[in-house]
Structure formats: C-alpha cells, structure tokens
C-alpha cells in the first residue's frame, strides 16, 4: 500500500522530470491521441513500479527505462504519421511554421529525420541529445558502451545523410 506521502513524492518527482516524458511521447507517437495515450501509460507504469524504486539508480535513469520500455514495447503506438515526412516535402513544411526561428526549424528538421529511424535508434538519439553519458545509456538500454558508440556513429551518419537529402529535395 502506497502512502499519501509517497504519492506526493512521486507526483513531485514526475513533475520535475516531465520534460523527459514529453520528449519520449513526441518521438514515438505521431498523433495527439497516441501521445496522450502513451503519456498516460508511462505514468501508470511509473506509478506501478514506484514501490520497487530503491534509489540505487538515479530517478531519471529509472524513469528513462520505464518510459522507453513502455514506448518501445507498446506496439499499438506504431501508427504511421499523419503528415508526410517525405524528404522532398520538408522545405514546404518548414516554411509553414511561421513562428519558428532558425533553431526551431533545425529542431523540426531533426524530428522529421528522427521519425524515420527505428525505435532503438530513436532511443539512442534521444539519450545522446539529452547529453547522457555512454555509461548511463548502458544502464538504461542494456547495450554495451562499445556497441553504443558504434551504433551512435551509424545514426549520426544516417541523420546527416537524411537531412542532406531533404535539403536537396532527394527522396
């Protein structure tokens, strides 16, 4: 039985780390409904697992594990995007974002490219962008650091290629 104090502590912790949950939902889902479903599912799984959290690992590491496990395993979420991510349409899409500055456009471009990666590659890219060390990545994903480095280099090449193709309208 979880006490009210524990419940409050849990809510405080999740609230502090909500950015991670939003990023995972954004990376793994294409529609608002799917994002909402995934967000709820992650919070439910976090709450269920919370009594088992002993603080051996950092809260963020524990949270990443549960969020990524839920996002990757819950295969209902793998629905096609509602908007096209075809590289030759990227410039038009980007032009439509009136408010965005250069950096936001870059981020949008990055998201579009990440959407074409596999579930595992998405997880790696996200942890890399979050500036997690390879040791932390290993703790979260269970992949050896050497293998992580190899994979990360491949992903960087892949993203570079994708965005270059998008810029030149090659698809």
């Amino acid at each position: 039985m979880v006490s009210t104090d524990q419940q409050e502590a849990f809510i405080r912790l999740v609230d502090q780390h909500r950015g991670i949950l939003h990023k995972v939902c954004r990376l793994y889902c294409f529609t608002d409904t799917d994002r909402q479903d995934l967000f709820q599912e992650i919070v439910i799984q976090l709450w269920r697992s919370y009594p088992g959290f002993r603080g051996d690992a950092k809260f963020s590491t524990w949270l990443y594990r549960i969020a990524l496990n839920t996002a990757i395993s819950d295969l209902r979420k793998q629905r096609p995007p509602t908007t096209s991510t075809s590289p030759d349409q990227l410039p038009t899409e980007l032009q439509d974002i009136q408010y965005s500055g250069e950096k936001e456009q870059q981020l949008q471009l990055l998201y579009t490219a990440i959407n074409r990666l596999t579930e595992v590659e998405k997880a790696l890219t996200m942890l890399y962008l979050e500036d997690r060390t390879y040791q932390e990545m290993e703790e979260i994903l269970g992949i050896t650091q050497n293998n992580l480095r190899v994979k990360m280099n491949r992903i960087k090449d892949k993203l570079r290629k994708m965005t270059k193709e998008a810029a030149y309208g090659i698809g």
Binding site: I11, D15, H22, C25, R26, R35, F39, Q45, L75
Partner: peptide
C-alpha cells in the same frame, strides 16, 4: 500540442492518471 493532448503535468493532472488502468498489451 502537448498540453492540448492532455499531457500537461502538475499535481491535478497527474493524480487522476494514478487511478487509471493500464492499456498496454
């Protein structure tokens, strides 16, 4: 979009989620 999709955080929005049932596989 995140907020529109009901993913906003904070005590009030997180609390009801704790009572919900999982819809995972």
């Amino acid at each position: 979009e995140v907020h529109a999709a009901g993913m906003s955080s904070g005590r009030e929005s997180l609390l009801p989620l704790l009572q919900q049932r999982s819809r995972g596989p």
